[in-house]
Amino acid sequence: MAVCVAVIGKDNSPLYIGGIGNDCSTDNELSRQWLVHTALDALEERLATSSSINANSGNSTAHTDLRDLYGYVTNTRIKLVLVTSSTSPSGSNIRDAEVRTALRRLHALYADAICNPFHLPGDQITSVKFDKQVKSLILNNV
């Protein structure tokens, strides 16, 4: 299941990092940043080599012992990162399709969030509504 979600801006600055989790590796800000940072390197690498070929905002992955990291880059160079624990509670592996829908919905949420007239492009997303919606996405989707 998903434990952490991040939105990274054009210049690789974190716009939003949030997550749920009750184990020590994801429940604090610092370890989340670490996880997301790991994914960014993998993402950048893929972008550099295949930026023109990849159809829609390529899914790229990285793995650590306990976590799977999924990345998604939008046309506007916003990077969305989803961190899941390697196995879902039921024991089966998480399917790519599920991750893709989750990331797509996250992008929709992000597009809504920046339409807030009080949000300045490039600023961190502080919207409570966005936070709530992302958390429910994490809980329900994967």
Partner: peptide, 20 residues
């Protein structure tokens, strides 16, 4: 400018990556 910036995020959501 602000409107264009925000609209673009929505419009390009399901769009394949731009070549150039």
């Amino acid at each position: 400018f602000a409107a264009g910036y925000k609209i673009m995020e929505r419009l390009t959501r399901e769009w394949p990556r731009f070549k150039d």
